[in-house]
């Protein structure tokens, strides 16, 4: 399984593919089959007026990014971990952190 992520062209914010479109909250990202993910990546790489630098995040069976991607994707999904925004991001979306730290 994989997640599809990118940055929005206009403001650069991190986006996650939800199955029907892009959302800012990583908690709403859809876990995609490898084939679907690969096809969507090709599709969205061409839609450059909407998103920049789309890529796939491979997941383990527990739904966390695979180990070699883990820290980077944890920070990308939850926001900076320095007390300024991580909590604010979680609060904004009414949830706790995504992925296990």
């Amino acid at each position: 399984m994989k997640l599809l992520t990118a940055n929005r062209l206009t403001d650069g914010l991190t986006l996650w593919y939800s199955g029907s479109g892009w959302v800012e909250d990583a908690a709403e990202a859809t876990k995609l089959s490898d084939d679907d993910a690969d096809a969507l990546l090709i599709e969205w790489k061409l839609r450059e007026t909407e998103v920049v630098a789309p890529y796939l995040i491979p997941l383990t069976d527990t739904g966390n990014p695979v180990q070699r991607e883990h820290v980077r994707e944890f920070v990308r999904a939850n926001g900076p971990t320095i007390g300024q925004t991580t909590d604010a991001v979680a609060k904004e979306h009414g949830r706790t952190a995504i992925f296990e730290e």
Partner: peptide, 8 residues
């Protein structure tokens, strides 16, 4: 102007 992890 760079594109970083979370934004420009």
């Amino acid at each position: 102007l760079y594109l970083q992890l979370h934004a420009y």
